[in-house]
């Protein structure tokens, strides 16, 4: 079982790297949706011994929200706001992947150093969570497209979710639902905002939104 979870986490990290290297927005959204589904599966697998209704509910919520709802919402924003399909990076794709590998190295190193021992005893959990977290932040920093910002927050949330599921079993019910709710509201608000921004300005590039300042 542990090997299986390890492979799952490796896939998760691979998706992170792919997010950094992919140039099309739609592919990015697909990857994030796949990552969300993986997280749902991961939640169940990480607690096969003590699978309670609560955990099953969290897993199902993650699976549906992250795997289907968010991507659907983002996809709708793309359609309605006729967003440009390229990501328009500040930092190119190959440098991003190299940076991603450096972040992965840092995550592995931090994972070994930090006292965040995971409750389920799999060494890769903390690095994978950190890596996902960093990837989300990197996407927010290094891409112009406003939708990517939204996507970045979802990925950041994924990272936090992994830690939450893996480290403490009791608390996450509340925390997790809160975060999930936050994220869904964020996605909704973002979608609406993007729609309106686009209608007013004919673009959603964050660097050009600077003109809004007084």
């Amino acid at each position: 079982m542990i090997e299986f979870i390890e492979i799952l986490l490796m896939l998760l990290i691979l998706f992170d790297l792919a997010l950094l290297g992919v140039s099309r927005l739609k592919t990015c959204i697909t990857i994030s949706s796949l990552q969300g589904m993986l997280l749902g599966i991961f939640t169940v697998l990480a607690h096969t011994q003590g699978l309670t209704l609560r955990i099953a509910l969290i897993a199902a919520a993650a699976f549906v929200l992250k795997g289907f709802l968010f991507p659907r919402l983002l996809g709708r924003s793309i359609r309605e706001a006729s967003v440009s399909l390229e990501l328009e990076p500040y930092i190119g794709y190959i440098p991003s992947v190299i940076a991603g590998l450096a972040l992965l190295g840092a995550s592995l190193w931090l994972g070994a150093k930090l006292p965040l021992s995971s409750a389920i005893g799999i060494p890769l959990v903390v690095p994978a969570a950190l890596m996902t977290f960093f990837t989300g932040l990197f996407l927010i920093i290094a891409r112009k497209n406003a939708l990517t910002q939204c996507l970045g927050y979802i990925i950041v949330e994924n990272g936090i979710y992994i830690i939450g599921v893996a480290s403490v079993v009791e608390i996450p019910m509340l925390v997790e639902l809160g975060i999930l709710l936050d994220a869904s509201v964020a996605v909704l608000v973002m979608g609406v905002a993007i729609y309106h921004i686009n209608r007013e300005f004919d673009h959603i590039e964050t660097d050009r939104l600077d003109t809004l300042k007084g």
Binding site: M10, L17, G21, Y93, V97, I98, L101, L104, L108, A112
Partner: peptide, 23 residues
């Protein structure tokens, strides 16, 4: 334009694999 990205991805896969082996 995309070819270097795919080849970089191959290198990235190798580096990732090495990190996993070493850790």
């Amino acid at each position: 334009l995309r070819v270097p990205q795919l080849l970089a991805a191959a290198s990235a896969l190798s580096v990732f694999a090495f990190m996993l082996v070493v850790r």
